[in-house]
Design a protein around this nucleic acid. Sequence first.
DNA 1: TTATTAATCTACTAAATCTATAGGGTTTAG
DNA 2: CTAAACCCTATAGATTTAGTAGATTAATAA
Lengths: 137, 137
Amino acid sequence: MLSKKTKYGIKALTFLARQEGNIPVQIATISNSENISLKFLESILLTLRKNGFLGSKKGKGGGYYLLKKPKDIQMTSVMRVLEGPIAMVPCVSLNFYEKCADCPDENTCAVHKLMIQVRDSSLEIFRNTTLADLCDC
Amino acid sequence: MLSKKTKYGIKALTFLARQEGNIPVQIATISNSENISLKFLESILLTLRKNGFLGSKKGKGGGYYLLKKPKDIQMTSVMRVLEGPIAMVPCVSLNFYEKCADCPDENTCAVHKLMIQVRDSSLEIFRNTTLADLCDC
DNA sequence: TTATTAATCTACTAAATCTATAGGGTTTAG
DNA sequence: CTAAACCCTATAGATTTAGTAGATTAATAA
């Protein structure tokens, strides 16, 4: 299951991508338009800012804005920051690899074999999809 | 993340698929070979039996065995029984569809658009992979 | 028939994670 | 100064996951 965090994060990013120019948009504006709990969204935007997707402006007239063009934001990086590893099991993860404690041999492991395929196909989709593709802009 | 339930379930199925003939295999045997908590595995095998993948025999010489040939067991059905929906969000699920409460229009929803692609590619892999493919038998 | 073996079933619990909220702190524009 | 708006930490409630306990039922062998 996709977490609400990721779901809301993607929605917020596309909302920002659809704005004219790079004028800061307030959390409350996004929260209202996309029906997302304000404080929860706040924490999500914070992590997006800390990971280089968003810039922010404090004080009156402040808000959040995209730091890059939508077509330069790959969904791989968005997913990794919000959702974590793209792989369904750590033993097939490229960026977060971990050996399974219970599994003696990855080469004969059925789960490993299957999940590598799933990882590769998901990865291809996330790589070839940018924020621009999702918001048609 | 793939649940341990699904991971263990797939391992158990491949273990059974690798056996000669359809001789019942005891839970303890699988539990030991695959390093899975016996009682947890017990509950997993029970759901696999209730969903038509396994047969069981009680008493001495009893155990679990596959009801179909490995090549006739698609991973789609295994995943749906153990892990649940293949889609990452209910609004793109074929078998477990649910409308998102917060989302006014699926057609303009970025998450929807992205997750349909992911669903389709995962589905294709699970459809084209059988238990036989995973255990090379 | 009796003992043994092994699956069946129900209920429960501990831990982890997710979702959301609370509440103060800090910065900026006017 | 003051109101607007982001910054940050902590925490609570709900849900899910992973595993445990223990009694029951069925099959087999002696």
